[in-house]
Design a protein around this nucleic acid. Structure first.
Lengths: 199, 199
DNA sequence: TAGATTGGATACCTGCGCTCTCCAATAGTG
DNA sequence: CACTATTGGAGAGCGCAGGTATCCAATCTA
C-alpha cells in the first residue's frame, strides 16, 4: 500500500498522515526507494487507533503518543501501565486529605496516597468545592462504590495469560471506555429523570 | 469591589477578567461612571465557577458559556436542562442500533433513541470498535447498570422544591461530578489490580 | 517518454485562550 | 487642587495544538 491508498482506505488526508509520521505516531513505511515507501495493514489499524483515541476519546496527540508507546513496548507492571495512560503532570502540593478519607471509607487503603490517581481525585474534588458545589458524603461514597464496581468489571476483563494483549486491553480500555461510561451516565440521567419526575 | 480587587480576591489576572467580560461569561459590573464599575460577591463566585468548569471540568469556554446561561435562565424542563449541558453538535446519521439494543437490555427503553445522550453513546461505542477494541456484551451491560446506579444517585440528589437550585445542581453536577467519577474509576483500577494481582 | 504520485522538508493557517497596549476618564492622595 | 494610579473599553498580538499547503526532486505508471 502506498500513502495515497492508505489515505483512501482510512479516510485520513495524505498531509495528515505525513504529519502523524513526522510526529512519530505512525511508524514509517518500508522504504523501497528514495521516494517510495510501502505501508501495510498494521498502518491502517494504527491510523484507526490514532483517530479513535484523538477524536473518539478526546486525547491530545501527546497523550496518544504515550498510549501508543505503551502499547508498543508494554511496561512490565500493570500499575506502571495504568500510570502511562492516566498520568497528567500537575501541582503535587495539594490537599489530599478529603480524597484519602474517601478512600478509607471505601476500604481502598491499599492504594498509595501519592499515586497520580489519588492526585486526580483530589483535583476533581477541589474543582467541585471551588465552584461552590457540594455532594453529600454518603452520596460520594455511593458513587465511589459504583465506580469501584466499574473498575472491578474492567480489571476482571484483562487477559492475564498474554502480556501484550493485557497491555493493549488496559491501555485502550482506560482511554476508550471512559467516554462510553460518561455517555451511559448521561442516558442514565435521562432515564432516572423520567422515572422520578414522570414523562 | 473594583476590577483590581476582584482580580486579587480571585487570583484571576485583570486582563483575563476583562476577556471574560468581553466574552459574556461574566456579567458587567455596575457602572458608576464612564470608566468605573463596581463588582460584587456574585462576580467573585461566578469567577470561581468559570475556572472550575474550564480548568477543573475541562470544558471549552463556549460550553462554559452555555452552562452559565442555563444556570442563569433555567429551561423549564429538567430534560432540556440536561441537554443544554451535554449537547455536542455532530453528525446525526450514525448507526444507533448497538446503543439502542444496549438500552433495551438495561430496561431504559423510555429514553428517546434520537436524544443527544443516545447519540453520545453511539459515538463512544463506534470509537471503540474503530480502534479494534471490543468489550463483551455482558460486561457492557454490567457497566451500564453501574452507571445507571450512578445516575440514580445523582438524580436523587436534585432538590425538587426550588427550581433555580435544581437547575444549578443539575448543570454543575453534570459537569463537575464527571471528572470525580473518572478519578474514582482510576483509583478503583489501582485497587482492583492490587486485589487481583497482589502487590 | 509524459504525466501523475511520492517522500521529505518547510512554511503556512485556524481556533482557542488568553495577554499586551493604548487611551481618555476618573479616583484617590497629599 | 494637582498629580499619580487605576479603570473601562477596544484592538492587536501571542503561544500552542493540530493540521494544510507548497515545493522539490526522485520515481512509478501508462
Amino acid at each position: 500500500m502506498r500513502i495515497g491508498e492508505l489515505s483512501r482506505a482510512s479516510g485520513v488526508p495524505v498531509p495528515t498522515i505525513k504529519y502523524y509520521l513526522r510526529e512519530g505516531l505512525l511508524h514509517p513505511g518500508e522504504l523501497t526507494s528514495a521516494t517510495q515507501a510501502r505501508y501495510g495493514e498494521d498502518h491502517l489499524e494504527r491510523l484507526g487507533l490514532i483517530r479513535a483515541l484523538a477524536e473518539g476519546a478526546g486525547l491530545p496527540l501527546a497523550r496518544v503518543r504515550t498510549v501508543l508507546e505503551a502499547v508498543d513496548r508494554p511496561p512490565s507492571s500493570p500499575l506502571e501501565l495504568l500510570a502511562s495512560v492516566t498520568e497528567v503532570p500537575g501541582e503535587d502540593d495539594l490537599d489530599r486529605s478529603e480524597a484519602v478519607a474517601l478512600l478509607q471509607r471505601l476500604g481502598w487503603d491499599d492504594v498509595d496516597p501519592r499515586s497520580s490517581s489519588v492526585l486526580a481525585l483530589a483535583r476533581a474534588l477541589r474543582s467541585m468545592s471551588e465552584a461552590g458545589f457540594a455532594v453529600e458524603p454518603e452520596h460520594l461514597l455511593a458513587l465511589g462504590r459504583a465506580m469501584g464496581s466499574v473498575a472491578e468489571i474492567e480489571v476482571a476483563g484483562v487477559p492475564l495469560d498474554d502480556p501484550a494483549a493485557a497491555a493493549r486491553y488496559v491501555v485502550l480500555g482506560t482511554a476508550l471506555v471512559g467516554p462510553v461510561l460518561l455517555a451511559l451516565r448521561q442516558v442514565g440521567h435521562v432515564h432516572a429523570s423520567l422515572q422520578r419526575l414522570g414523562g
